[in-house]
């Protein structure tokens, strides 16, 4: 086990400890979240959709659950639970889609668990969580039909997307839906900036749970991430200076 391995373990354990501690102190010193207009607009759009009897669609992307692209899909599953709660009273509850079988199965499970926790198990339909296509472009190819038939007015893209994400956002815009899009892929974030109503830049997609009220640990996570980001900035600056001065590491 080398130094790098030890450093990795140390960072992970430290991250976990900070997370637990901050979650414990969250009640006493609650985290103040900076305003993210995207999530404020999302809440308002969901409320409008519920009142108008229209549907909210949540897309978990074309990534898998066992790769590095699973992070945004898991964040999307948290957002699914919150969105299902918000649309519980609607005649047209939330519908979730994905481009991977494992993600589709996980989304069904998450939806059923959420509705069961809210005492609305009878409202679960397994067709509300579905896989539209096994490949990214085949997923996008079936999206227009689904948005049109389900009368979607809020189109949320929260998962791993490649270039096809821009097409998915544009399809929602053509349907006159409110489009909020976030992913982990940086080039796709640039595409979302041009095509979505409310793009999420950087790690804002991972903050969806905290902004939608998923719980104290989500808010504590953001605080810990901020702290570690600060540490990283200091390390980068110091390392750059040392490197410039010729001090080898």
């Amino acid at each position: 086990m080398g130094l790098r391995d030890l450093l990795g373990i140390g960072i992970l354990i430290g991250f976990a400890v900070l997370l637990i501690v901050r979650t414990g102190t969250e009640r006493r010193w609650p985290t103040t979240l900076r305003a993210l207009p995207a999530f404020d607009e999302l809440r308002r759009a969901i409320e409008r959709a519920v009142e108008a009897g229209q549907r909210v669609h949540l897309s978990l992307g074309t990534g898998t659950l066992i790769g590095s692209d699973s992070g945004p899909a898991l964040a999307g599953l948290t957002a699914l639970a919150q969105t299902a709660e918000l649309t519980l009273e609607s005649d047209r509850p939330v519908v979730v889609s994905s481009g991977d079988g494992a993600v589709a199965a996980a989304s069904q499970d998450a939806l059923r668990g959420t509705l069961g926790r809210l005492g609305a198990s009878d409202r679960f339909r397994w067709t509300r969580a579905r896989m539209l296509g096994p490949t990214p472009f085949s997923y996008v190819a079936t999206l227009p039909g689904m948005l049109d038939s389900e009368r979607v007015s809020v189109h949320v893209l929260l998962g791993h997307f490649g270039n096809e994400g821009a097409l998915a956002a544009d399809i929602g815009a053509r349907q006159r839906s409110f489009v909020l899009a976030g992913t982990d892929a940086v080039p796709t974030q640039a595409l979302f900036y041009a095509t979505a109503d409310q793009p999420l830049i950087g790690e804002e997609a991972f903050a969806a749970g905290a902004y939608l009220g998923a719980g104290g640990m989500h808010r504590a996570s953001l605080r810990v991430q901020d702290l570690l980001r600060l540490v990283l900035i200091i390390v980068i600056v110091v390392g750059t200076l040392l490197s410039t001065l010729g001090v080898g590491l």
Binding site: G67, S68, D69, G162, N163, A185, V186, P187
Partner: peptide, 9 residues
């Protein structure tokens, strides 16, 4: 690859 993620992996 057309995606940076695959290359990184």
């Amino acid at each position: 690859t057309s995606g940076s993620e695959d290359a990184r992996v």
